[in-house]
């Protein structure tokens, strides 16, 4: 089963990368950009077939396996 995990910085946390890209795009004339936040996307293939079991495993990986840093990040699981 294929799972997607979107990991983004928590809202209160400064996203220095997003800030730099936002400024750069604006400087290049893309004035429509209002703000930009950058995170990462993880794609994983699990040997499980049940959707709920897969989601549970991924949550475990996130919370116990160090897949994300809860102090500075938040996540969203997407079943594909």
């Amino acid at each position: 089963m294929k799972i997607g995990i979107k990991i983004m910085p928590r809202e209160v946390i400064l996203d220095s990368q997003g800030r730099a890209v936002e400024q750069s795009m604006k400087m290049n004339g893309f004035s429509e950009v209002q703000d930009c936040r950058i995170g990462k996307y993880v794609e994983m293939n699990l040997s499980l077939e049940d959707k709920e079991a897969a989601k549970l495993q991924v949550e475990k990986m996130l919370k116990e396996g160090g897949l994300y840093n809860p102090l500075i990040e938040k996540f969203e699981i997407q079943l594909m």
């Binding site: 220095s16 990368q17 730099a20 890209v21 750069s24 950058i38």
Partner: peptide
Amino acid sequence: SHGDYLRCGAL
């Protein structure tokens, strides 16, 4: 340059 943000040298 540009913090190496996005990709090194990209911005």
